[in-house]
Design a protein around this nucleic acid. Structure first.
Length: 511
RNA sequence: GGUCCCGUCGCCAAGUGGUAAGGCAACGGUUUGCAAAACCGUUAUUCCCCGGUUCGAAUCCGGGCGGGACCUCCA
């Protein structure tokens, strides 16, 4: 099956409209930078980063743009609370956002245009809409006239007439229709200078949606191949973007609209307005970026992602994340095992050759993986294939005792190596297995602790060797020695350190 | 009031017409001095309920019950 992508506009899966080798333009709505990012902000970036990785894997070139909205009511309010300026707050929160993306291996974004750097373009587009009679100035503001846009509401299936029934519609005397929305907001008394620009309609600042229309057009052209964002942005943000852009260009704004599901708690919605959000920074200290990414990709992107039970208190890990962490250890452990067997790092090993020949067995894993990804980027199904593959590899390693010193099993070793290369390749498409878990984390970041552990393990292994050397199973000395080795292991376990005795030696890890 | 989504093992979750992936948890077993890790096996004759269409339904249709999102702050 070739690639199928679900589009919100048509409400069905469509064959992807581009041919491999062509460049795909992708625009995803980014954050309003007024608060530190919470984990919900990472869902879209992780998903679309994976979309890009997969598109590249099957032969496309991809240009991906994510906007930074650095002027907005929320920024003005927040800057006031913090006694800082809007640009300073925006710069700080933008850094936070970019740092979060990096920790989650979101590396595919080509450009991050900022709204404040495109004010001129916005004024120009608003001017064109006014000239066309689709927008109208009103007392310092400029509004988009939804009654002039014959297909307004097509993205969400809303009838503009019905919008009048909405309970939360702002009643403004300046608007011609209740559904009209602001393209330009006239400056209000007392608003800081940094958020005020001159325009043909007087000083003010842009409305919420116009920056995406202007920046996507400038950087990616009139028609986007993929427009993405969170489901909550579908209305009004995307509906309005679409209306503005198509009214401006008379061309389709986006070929495919992709909307990702939102993060939720078992108890319901997670939202800044409810005060039950988990910041990315906190989540990173609890479980790490790779686990977070793995967790997000475990569910199909259009479904809501359930964090499970969680109390918004320090140190509390949502049950869904704890589960993901446990599950992901399977791969981490495999990486360690790969290193013990081959002497090379699983995580930094060389890039696989895509043209290599593959055994029938391995080819079937690749095929299953591809079929899931071709089916509207079904990462949840694809992750299942990764588990099957790692199980097969562990089975090979067990059966042929690849970890035992002097294992003579060239064919088995080749089979193991081939599978490991494939596992790594498939993992990378999902943005996983890109770097080794840091040594600092394993040793608790402490050189002294690492050295003491080595000493303790050596002493314990001396005791074990002595005990094993006593042939008489009933010998009280043998038992006494083993009691001591077990005591060491138990006391370390109480400190959250696990010892593992293996044929080639003893290893330890935190957790 | 309008628009839309969902209900699959104790929990998470893939599967949208061809006879129920995967993970976590649990319980047996192999391995181990004992563990840990890994591996093998067991755990949903059944997919919220009731009808219907079909040779065949978790998947399609109708009705019910339950949960959720959006309707100008939200990723």
């Amino acid at each position: 099956m070739s690639l199928q992508v679900y589009s919100t506009l048509s409400r069905k899966k469509e064959p992807f409209h581009k041919r491999p080798g062509e460049t795909v333009s992708m625009y995803v709505c980014g954050p309003t930078v007024y608060k530190p990012s919470h984990i919900g902000h990472m869902v879209g970036p992780v998903i679309f980063d994976t979309v890009k990785r997969y598109l590249q894997y099957i032969g496309y070139k991809v240009t991906w743009v994510v906007n930074i909205t650095d002027v907005d009511d929320k920024l003005i309010v927040r800057a006031g609370e913090l006694k800082t300026t809007v640009p300073e707050l925006a710069a700080k929160m933008t850094d936070d956002y970019l740092d979060c993306l990096k920790k989650l291996n979101v590396t595919g974004i080509d450009q991050f245009p900022k709204a404040t750097e495109h004010i001129g373009g916005m004024i120009a587009m608003i001017g064109r809409l006014v000239a066309k009679g689709i927008a109208y100035p009103a007392d310092g503001d400029v509004y988009f006239d939804v009654s002039k846009d014959s297909d307004y509401g097509k993205l969400c299936g809303f009838d503009p007439e019905q919008l009048e029934g909405g309970a939360r519609l702002e009643v403004s005397g300046k608007k011609r229709n209740p559904g009209d929305f602001a393209l330009w907001k006239g400056a209000k008394p007392g608003e800081p200078k940094e958020v005020t620009w001159d325009s043909p309609w007087g000083p003010g600042r842009p409305g919420w949606h116009i920056e995406c229309s202007v920046m996507s057009q400038k950087l990616l052209g009139d028609t986007l191949d993929i427009h993405g964002g969170g489901l909550d942005l579908r209305f009004p943000h995307h509906e309005n973007e679409l209306a503005q852009s198509e009214s401006d260009t008379d061309k389709p704004f986006a070929k495919v609209w992709m909307h990702n599901g939102l993060l939720k708690l078992r108890s319901g919605k997670m939202a800044g307005s409810l005060g039950n959000v988990l910041n990315v920074a906190d989540a990173l200290t609890l479980v790490g970026g790779e686990t977070l990414r793995f967790f997000i990709l475990n569910t199909h992107y259009r479904s809501p992602i359930d964090l499970g039970d969680w109390e918004p208190t320090p140190g509390s890990i949502p049950s869904g994340l704890a589960n993901a962490q446990k599950a992901f250890e399977t791969f981490t452990r495999f990486g360690e095992r790969y290193q013990r067997i081959t002497g090379r790092s699983f995580f930094t090993s060389t890039k696989p050759d895509p043209r290599r020949t593959m055994s029938v067995d391995m080819g079937s894993y690749l095929m299953r993986f591809s079929e899931h990804m071709n089916d509207d980027f079904n990462t949840g199904g694809a992750v299942g294939v990764l588990f099957d593959l790692v199980t097969a590899l562990n089975r090979t390693a067990d059966f042929h005792r690849l970890e035992s010193p002097g294992a003579q099993a060239d064919r088995a070793m080749a089979e193991f190596e081939e599978g490991a290369v494939l596992l790594k390749e498939l993992g990378q498409i999902l943005g996983l297995f890109l770097q080794a878990p840091s040594q600092a984390k394993l040793a608790g970041g402490d050189q002294l602790a690492a050295g003491l552990m080595d000493l303790l393990i050596e002493l314990r292994n001396n005791l074990r060797a002595t005990a094993k050397g006593i042939a008489d199973k009933a010998d009280p000395t043998k038992k006494a020695l083993f009691d001591q080795t077990d005591l060491i292991r138990q006391r370390l376990a109480a400190l959250n350190v696990t010892l593992e005795d293996r044929p080639a030696g003893t290893t330890w890890r935190v957790g």
